[in-house]
Design a protein around this nucleic acid. Structure first.
Lengths: 204, 204, 204, 204
DNA sequence: TTTTAACCGAGACGGTACGTCACGTCTTGTG
DNA sequence: CACAAGACGTGACGTACCGTCTCGGTTAAAA
């Protein structure tokens, strides 16, 4: 590092932003498959060559665009019970996925195929984005004595996003209030209380 | 209905098979995006028009091809315990997904974006394919008294495929023996035993 | 020949004409270098792929276009003297080259570099197109006794086009009435009269 | 005029040479159309801006390059007769055009279309380069009494290059010993002797 | 000696056209 | 009719150069 080849006209970094922004917008509007580099260039007021100078192809552009696009600002949540908090979190998440960002999400999934790093990133960002909120929720639940301190929180984070994503984007079943309650009551809470008490009842 | 214009040369039904077979092969080899109808036609020794006469477009062809392609010939399973059976089933499923059919699976998922019907089909075929096997497994578990007759079997079928697919194709985390045991012990079995006893302990 | 693969939709031959016509027009308007296939396609109301299906590239298209384009319909000439006829013929030719067809001619020359066959063709067409007219002119001159029957007519056809083309397109000197007379009086006629009398005076 | 801002670092004149040399080489190798400024810069170990600082565009660069490229180092010639000298001169010229410089020449001609200045330059350089040699040849011929002092030497210089260039690069007919003799005997010498005696015999 | 302005390299930039590819539709002749 | 073959309009792909521009850094004459 650090001699940092300072040769030639430097790339205008602001263009990255404009381009990726345009890409994200189009992703939302027409989806990944029908998004064309030419359209991105047009919208970003940038020449096609500038795009191809920076990214090898469409997939890589979308990958970076999605990567840099922070798409979840979870509001702080505190309903008083773990059950209420979980339902609220999931509801919020689902709303995001289903609305404006749905197309984007689908595009993202497409990009994921090409770029595994992206999909890891995505997964992580889902967890992370939610991470801090979740931590707070779980901490309060422990304080209230709803779950034990050694409850398997990671397991919840393994299951919930998977089930929701799968339903929304693969099996195309709806995710409504009723299902969310079912998920929380019949899956997440049992899993948490199981891990809480597992040393006692469970015998394996 | 159904006088069904019996005029002119009848469609050669055998061609459907050949075409779909070619499509599946190519799906495995190059993935959905780089699969071209022209290539399918070439490999199937069939003209492009024959394909377009039968399917509206690429997505529909792939949908049908995948639908008719039985990709889970689950062997009969009986390890003596529900836990053993579940682990065996999941292990088998994962093995399929990870091996030869990996590309195909990824292709399918891609197609799912575009074609919701396909993804429904896909989801259904996964459930169906497994359905009969699962039924037997659960029946024996009930007979053995491991779970109650009103245990929430559907919930298990909602969770397991979702978690596995998500890990393999989205978060790209590995699914090994350890994780499968974790899934069965810390998620599936607790969920089943919860629903069994829920009327009694649970109060909400 | 002649089994003549009669498979598939036949090429619409009329399109060749339309395309080549458009090419010729554009050649005249903007010249070879600034003529783009895209513009040809647009003007011919034809898709780019149709052009590329028929010709390998721009040069080959222009080659064929020029080839099929008959560009000299010399009017019949009879001024009463060989000198007058020659001047008239050359004047006419020069006028064509300088006016509308000038650009075309230049384009043609460009194409010639790539395609030698074309340039041969061009040369021949110049000679041929003029051929019949010239024949008549020379025959009358012989009848009138202005030149002998064994005058070297070919030599004239070797010199005149060369000198004119060279001046117009290479040295870019003007070719006006005065120069044409100079060419006829000081070059062509002497050459013709030389060959007429060559057996007598010349000693080599 | 001509205080001529003498400020700042002066241009490195030696670079002109290197660049033009590279241009000439590439012209020979790939022809005018496929010659790119980028390639010239690369070969000359020079940056693109250095080229564009000195020449407005490709055509002008090639024009200068050709102009400064002395491609006719005609050896001194003295065969004893005008006929012999002419044949030798033309033979030499043709040899040059046909050999290594063929591509270059063709490139030049192409460039001439676009850039009239270039073609003038080219024409002039051909005449000039040959000029001195020709002068000597003609002077000796006059001294020997082969032609008169008022013989139309210019006319010869108008005809010979035109005919040769045309045959080589347009009609693609070969220029061999036989044709050269034909040109000298049946065209050039008659033209010269015509102008010599024209005031006497000719009456028009 | 310092300033100053042009030079030089590298390479980004907006363009324009290239030639290719696959789409899904259409138009033939043959079975 | 089905079918094979392949032409067709469409639209995007990724590449190659064009000629311009913007940097950091250099170089020699003018101040």
């Amino acid at each position: 590092m650090s001699i940092s080849t300072l040769l030639g006209r430097p790339r205008d970094a602001s263009r990255d932003v404009v381009i990726e922004k345009a890409a994200i917008e189009l992703l939302r509007e027409v989806g990944y498959e029908r998004l064309s580099i030419e359209a991105v260039a047009l919208r970003a007021q940038v020449s096609k060559s500038t795009i191809y100078r920076r990214w090898k192809n469409k997939a890589e552009l979308i990958a970076d665009a999605v990567h840099h696009y922070a798409f979840c600002k979870m509001p702080s949540i505190d309903s008083g019970t773990l059950r209420g908090d979980l339902i609220e979190i999931i509801t919020e998440k689902v709303k995001t996925m289903k609305s404006a960002d749905g197309q984007l999400f689908a595009g993202l999934m497409a990009a994921s195929r090409t770029d595994n790093d992206l999909s890891d990133l995505l997964t992580k960002s889902m967890a992370d984005g939610a991470g801090s909120v979740h931590s707070a929720v779980f901490e309060r639940a422990i304080e209230r004595g709803e779950i034990s301190a050694n409850a398997s929180l990671e397991t919840v984070l393994e299951i919930a996003p998977a089930v929701i994503t799968y339903r929304l984007f693969m099996s195309h079943q709806n995710v409504n209030r009723k299902f969310i309650e079912h998920l929380v009551d019949d899956v997440l809470l049992p899993v948490l209380s199981h891990s809480t008490t597992s040393p006692l009842i469970q015998s394996k």
